[in-house]
């Protein structure tokens, strides 16, 4: 098992290295002089020249890449042209908000989609199944930002159930000091008012973000449950007198959840992409708003940083899924270990 995980971890690190190099190359190829953009249209040629010197833009490409990777290995992503602060600092400030949103969304997806899929499969072709299939289809076909705006209009603006934007009511005067995640820190500090407020803030953006994935994963869970239910060993377990609920949840779901979990891992990538839009709609102070700003301003170091952070997210998510799958399905790790 350890060998299996080590192997996965190393291959994922290689992916990250490849991503770092690729995004660096792309950032250097795109037209436009970063120094000029950073200084604005009024700067003189000398100023631009000095800025280029300072940023190392006139060094040979390989040297730039090496310096960049060297810095990266030491946790240094360079300086933002825009804010003149280290990119790492900026990202670290914005990251917890996004991390909280994405994590909450994933939890929401897991606890809603898999059970719904199971229920739909068990009560297959009944009204339960049909309703959940239609709802999931709507979830899949509605883009996240459309849903975001609809939710905002209906649930926040008209019905006033939820706050329209933001992450927390500033009036509470709370700052998350432990992990940066409001929901977690407020529990640690036993500030239930903060917890409730943060929950009300996070619910709409994460529903908007989760909807597509929920529909998709639900449908996959349903179809793989149905597929598994036709296998011989399920009939064998029933004939051996194992109670129906145990057959469904231990014998069937354990195998049927492999496909949806794999999809959830992939879903993670699109989640960060979609978070850019949803965060924007809800003015969520996360990395997406930061990312959008830096892209529009062509703040190269910051763009690279944001992309890399999303990459790390994606890799951690996949490693987690691989670990879970390794536990659930012995075939994965046995195959790796026996080689």
């Amino acid at each position: 098992m350890l060998f299996y995980l080590a192997k996965r971890a190393i291959s994922l690190l290689l992916v990250l290295l490849g991503l770092a190099i690729l995004i660096f190359v792309i950032a250097r190829i795109v037209p436009g002089d970063p120094a000029r953009i950073a200084l604005g249209p009024l700067a003189t040629a000398t100023q631009v020249f000095e800025m280029r010197q300072e940023m190392g833009l006139d060094d040979p490409f390989v040297v730039q890449l090496w310096n960049y990777l060297y810095g990266l290995a030491h946790g240094d992503l360079g300086k933002s042209f825009l804010t003149s602060r280290p990119v790492m600092h900026d990202i670290m400030q914005a990251l917890p908000a996004t991390f909280e949103l994405v994590l909450f969304t994933i939890v929401l997806q897991v606890i809603l989609s898999i059970p719904l899929g199971v229920v739909a499969a068990i009560y297959r072709d009944t009204w339960v199944d049909n309703v959940s299939r239609i709802v999931s289809l709507i979830g899949v076909v509605t883009p996240g930002f459309v849903l975001a705006i609809i939710l905002q209009l209906v649930a926040s603006y008209k019905l006033q159930f939820f706050p329209v934007t933001g992450r927390i009511d500033q009036g509470l005067g709370y700052s998350a000091a432990h992990s940066g995640l409001l929901l977690v820190d407020s529990i640690i500090d036993q500030r239930w008012d903060v917890f409730g407020d943060a929950l009300r803030h996070i619910l709409l953006p994460s529903i908007a973000l989760a909807a597509g994935g929920i529909g998709q994963v639900m449908r996959i869970t349903r179809s793989s449950m149905i597929e598994v239910s036709g296998r011989d060993f399920i009939e064998a377990s029933r004939a051996n007198g194992i109670p129906e609920r145990v057959v469904q949840f231990r014998y069937m779901l354990r195998i049927a959840c492999i496909a949806p979990l794999t999809i959830l891992g992939l879903e993670f990538a699109s989640l960060i992409g979609n978070a850019f839009v949803v965060e924007f709609v809800f003015s969520w102070p996360g990395i997406a708003s930061y990312g959008v700003r830096t892209i529009l301003q062509k703040d190269l170091n910051a763009v690279i940083g944001v992309v890399l952070v999303s990459g790390v997210f994606f890799i951690i998510a996949n490693l987690t899924i691989d670990t879970i799958l390794g536990f659930i399905d012995p075939r994965n790790r046995l195959r790796e270990d026996s080689k």
């Binding site: 011989d232 060993f233 064998a236 029933r238 004939a239 051996n240 231990r250």
Partner: peptide, 22 residues
């Protein structure tokens, strides 16, 4: 109650009759 204790079965395919993940 009779399943397994009164009547029990041996299915045809010895691989497919097992749950592969347990």
């Amino acid at each position: 109650r009779i399943k397994g204790t009164g009547i029990s079965i041996v299915l045809q395919d010895p691989l497919l009759s097992f749950n592969p993940v347990l």
